[in-house]
Design a protein around this nucleic acid. Sequence first.
DNA 1: GCCTGTGAAGCTATTCACAGCT
DNA 2: AGCTGTGAATAGCTTCACAGGC
Lengths: 211, 211
Amino acid sequence: MKSEIPPNTVARLSLYRRLLEAWLEKGTTHLYSHEIASMACVTPAQVRRDLMAIGYSGSPSRGYSVDALEDSIGRFLGSDTVRKIALVGMGNLGRALATYFVSRAPRFRMTAAFDNDPRKTGRVIAGCMVHPVEAIPGIIPAEGIRTAVLALPPESAQEMADTLVKAGVKGILNFAPVPLRLPGDVFLENRDVTASLEKVAFFSGQPREGN
Amino acid sequence: MKSEIPPNTVARLSLYRRLLEAWLEKGTTHLYSHEIASMACVTPAQVRRDLMAIGYSGSPSRGYSVDALEDSIGRFLGSDTVRKIALVGMGNLGRALATYFVSRAPRFRMTAAFDNDPRKTGRVIAGCMVHPVEAIPGIIPAEGIRTAVLALPPESAQEMADTLVKAGVKGILNFAPVPLRLPGDVFLENRDVTASLEKVAFFSGQPREGN
DNA sequence: GCCTGTGAAGCTATTCACAGCT
DNA sequence: AGCTGTGAATAGCTTCACAGGC
């Protein structure tokens, strides 16, 4: 095989799609790459490359068909099928994420949530049924869940990640502030909020050249 | 000027530092690059490059002094001085972030929080005094705040970002799921959670080669 | 003229590989 | 022998710039 999709392209496609939906509702039928680029705050060349990656072609005279492109991105990302997600950790961050996903990312289904606190398990919190972590090996394969979000304290993150991978998870979005050691066939995205803030704080101090 | 620090290096330094602190408490005095690398789940060469960037040198025989390195990173990141942060948006995510920072990132001070909901303003929530957004132009310059975290719905994110920049903010950590158009001298880090989840879900489906 | 699609160039980030030190 | 520091190589991502089409 030759062609790989750059991860950043996937993230941008997600954004393009949301922008296109807004235009669809307004009845706009066609957009040029520079118009999409402007809304997404990227360069027009970037937009064309990204669309090239999913094999979608526009017309030089009219640009891209909003309707067909939205559909094309949707099928590429797989959002026409239900994508089941597991959430592990129902602390402050976990609850906020659950609420966020339910209201803002309806294309994902938060199929199951897990926590080790018995005061939380067995209840529905933020729209998600919370199970004890011991139920992971049973529920994940039974539901065919392949994607998990970790919102855990650093102490238990690695252990839960191992449990998830053993149960068949192939992609983890990790909010715990520790690195995870995972097999190479599991996709990992780290969102260490402390490190992000450190980065921003650092460059807020440094003077930067404008563009 | 010639040398620029790679943003990713800054994020990793934040991680190294936290790892070193744990070893300091255990009384370990020296570590080799491959030991730090193993804990951080990166390559030894990456660690040496990162430390080279801050001008810290180890010894081929003993490795890096945990104590001196921790200190060196701290001074480089500026964490010996108080770094004031403003948080804008006290919804579910904002509250979770505030709680998280107060307990897990004590080197940052959440100096002020802002929200436009009158039921929230004037109170202390998650350890932060919440002000109305109209107070931004007064408080930000008075406190000398240069860094802000945005946890807002997409509709108001751009407007609040503009207000913050006008008030002197030079770095924004954006959790709103929209791109922000900002002057080139303002550092921007986007943490669009929907896009992150989309990326992970996409690659959870695709088979990937191991390492 | 102004657009798309895309080879080539340019940047940035990471890893290799080895000289030099102890 | 096994480490660090680093030039050189590689990989990955973004932008340039232009051929080709309406």
